[in-house]
C-alpha cells in the first residue's frame, strides 16, 4: 500500500461524514463501508510497524543469527512453497478437522449437561462436586493419560481439544440457563406456557447467546491446546509441523505455522460471529440496551 492511498483513505471518511446525512438509512451502507476502510487502515498500523522492525532487525543487524530469525520475506517465500507443495494445506485440514471434531464432542456433551444443571438445582448439586474438582486441571495435564488410553493419533488430540472446550461451554450454558430473566418466565407462564414449553420456548432461546459466546471462547482455547497435543501425540497437524521444523532449525517454517494458526483462529472467530449474528440477530440490541 503506497502512502498516497493511505492518505486518501484517512481523509475521505471525515469529509463525507460532514457532507452526508448520518442518520438516513440509505447512506448507512456507504458510510459503513467507509468507516470499515478507515478502521482497516488503523488495524494495519501496528502489524506493519512490527513487520518493519522485524525486517530491519533480521536483515540489517547482527542481533540474531539468520537461522534463528529469518527475514519476513524468507517466511513468505517458504510459506508460498509450502502452499504450492500442498504440505501446509494437508496439515491445516488435519488440525481443523481435529478442532471441529473436538468442538462437536464438547458441545454435544456440555450443552445438554449444562441445560440440566441450570434447570435442576438438585442435579447441579450432584454434578457440581465432581466438575469443580476436574475443572481446574489444565487440558494438557490430561495428555499423559490420554496417550496411554487412546494411543498416539487422532483420538488423543481430539480428546484434548474436547476437554479444553468442554468446561467453558458447560459453565456458560449453566449461567445462561440460570440467567433467564424471571419477568420473561412470568410473562410466558401468564400466556399459558409450562413445563417443556417453558424450557424450549423461553429458557433455551434466552441461553443461546451465552452458549455461542462460550463456543467462540472454546475454539480459542482448543487452538491453544492443539499444538502441544499434536507435538506429543501426533505425526501430523500444525502443532506437529511447528515442533518438527523446530528440531531441524527451520524457523521460517515454524513462523509460517504460527501465522497459519493465528489466521485460522481469527477466521473461525469471524465465522462464529457471523453465525451469532445470523442465529441471534436480536442479541446485539439487547447488549446495547434499550
Amino acid at each position: 500500500m503506497s502512502s498516497a492511498t493511505n492518505e486518501a483513505d484517512m481523509t475521505r471518511p471525515e469529509r463525507d461524514e460532514i457532507a452526508g446525512p448520518k442518520g438516513s438509512g440509505k447512506d448507512a451502507t456507504g458510510l459503513f463501508a467507509r468507516l470499515m476502510r478507515q478502521q482497516v487502515y488503523l488495524y494495519l498500523v501496528l502489524p506493519l510497524s512490527v513487520l518493519l522492525l522485524w525486517h530491519v532487525t533480521a536483515a540489517h543487524t547482527d542481533l540474531f543469527p539468520p537461522v534463528l530469525l529469518p527475514t519476513p520475506w524468507k517466511v513468505v517465500v517458504s510459506g508460498m512453497a509450502m502452499i504450492e507443495s500442498g504440505e501446509l494445506l494437508s496439515h491445516i485440514r488435519i488440525s481443523l478437522g481435529r478442532i471441529l471434531t473436538g468442538m462437536a464432542f464438547s458441545v454435544c456433551l456440555a450443552l445438554p449437561l449444562g441445560v440440566f444443571m441450570g434447570l435442576s438445582r438438585r442435579f447441579e448439586k450432584i454434578a457440581d462436586g465432581l466438575i469443580s474438582l476436574i475443572r481446574p486441571i489444565p487440558p494438557l495435564a490430561w495428555l499423559p493419560l490420554a496417550v496411554l488410553w487412546l494411543g498416539i493419533g487422532n483420538a488423543t488430540v481430539v480428546f484434548i481439544t474436547s476437554v479444553a472446550g468442554f468446561f467453558v461451554i458447560l459453565v456458560n450454558t449453566i449461567a445462561g440457563v440460570k440467567g433467564v430473566d424471571q419477568v420473561l418466565m412470568r410473562a410466558a407462564m401468564s400466556l399459558g406456557a409450562k413445563g417443556s414449553a417453558l424450557i424450549f420456548r423461553v429458557v433455551l432461546p434466552a441461553a443461546i447467546p451465552a452458549v455461542i459466546t462460550a463456543v467462540r471462547v472454546a475454539v480459542g482455547i482448543s487452538w491453544m491446546s492443539i499444538v502441544a497435543a499434536e507435538f506429543v501425540a501426533a505425526s501430523d497437524g500444525l502443532g506437529y509441523l511447528i515442533t518438527f521444523y523446530q528440531d531441524v532449525l527451520r524457523t521460517d517454517i515454524v513462523i509460517v505455522g504460527m501465522f497459519t494458526i493465528g489466521a485460522l483462529g481469527i477466521s473461525m472467530d469471524v465465522l462464529l460471529r457471523r453465525l451469532e449474528h445470523f442465529l441471534v440477530p436480536w442479541h446485539e440490541g439487547v447488549k446495547v440496551g434499550r
Partner: peptide, 30 residues
Amino acid sequence: PGADRGMMFQEYCLFPWLTVQGNVEFGLRI
C-alpha cells in the same frame, strides 16, 4: 399462573428473540 389471567408488566418484557409477530403469537402457539 395460567393463560386465563393475562399479564402486562411494567418492564418491557417482550421475548427479545421473537419478532412483534412472534411475540403476539406466543400464547396462541402454546
